[in-house]
């Protein structure tokens, strides 16, 4: 059985070679789904360390992006030995960069960190109109809707999206978080979102709090 602490530490260190080496070895041992679930959890704890190091300004945005990539590779290796129950998610989230805005770097970081934390994320991409949010929310019934944007005009689109969700009678069934350069507490109130953040790691923590 592989050393969970060692794995968690290697993920936290973003030591890709070591992480993938450990996981390949683990998968070769033909593990049970229960063991695999523990390994996934060890990886998630490693990602929490990455988030902490980011807060401590030891890691920077580039490192977060790499962490997301590392986690994707890790899950790919583990997939063949995951049982059905391992895919149990802590919650569902509909996420997009709002209409009029084409920036997606921040959204993608938030997405990979949310997935690492156990969310099932439905990503509508960029320049997403309010109607796309409404349709997807109807379809998948998520706990959380995330809206991202870099331009100031994104704030208006976020507001429009919230209005559209209200009109469709969906607003009260979800928690709304907005993220990106222009978001502030004031903007959050104006838009009618439940939370705002300019820090992906913090945003994920807020979302985790909502589904606990």
């Amino acid at each position: 059985m592989l050393d969970m602490q060692e794995l968690t530490k290697a993920v936290g260190d973003l030591d890709e070679k070591k992480v993938l080496g450990l996981l390949n070895e683990f998968v070769a041992s033909n593990p049970s789904p229960q063991d695999t679930a523990m390994v996934v959890s060890a990886c998630q704890q490693g990602m929490a360390i990455v988030g902490d190091l980011f807060d401590a300004k030891e890691y920077f945005v580039g490192d977060l992006i790499f962490a997301g990539e590392l986690l994707t590779s890790a899950i790919d290796i583990l997939k063949p030995v995951m049982g059905g129950e391992n895919t149990a998610k802590i919650g569902k989230m509909v996420l997009a960069t709002v209409q009029g805005d084409l920036h997606d770097i921040g959204k993608n970081i938030f997405k990979s960190m949310s997935e690492a934390a156990g969310f099932e994320v439905y990503d509508l991409g960029i320049d997403a109109p309010a109607s796309a949010f409404v349709e997807k929310v109807k379809e998948v019934n998520p706990e959380i809707v995330g809206m991202s944007g870099v331009l100031t005009l994104a704030l208006d689109s976020m507001k429009n999206t919230v209005e559209a969700l209200k009109e469709a009678g969906l607003r009260d069934g979800v928690k709304l978080i907005i993220g990106g350069n222009p978001v502030t507490e004031e903007a959050c109130n104006m838009i009618g979102a439940d939370a705002f953040t300019t820090n992906a790691a913090e945003g994920v923590k807020i979302c985790q709090g909502w589904v606990k």
Binding site: Q99, G100, D101, L102, H103, D104, I105, D127, L151, L153
Partner: peptide, 13 residues
Amino acid sequence: FVMSSSGFLQHPE
């Protein structure tokens, strides 16, 4: 560099 629906020339990844 693509003009979005809002008329802003933006720089997608």
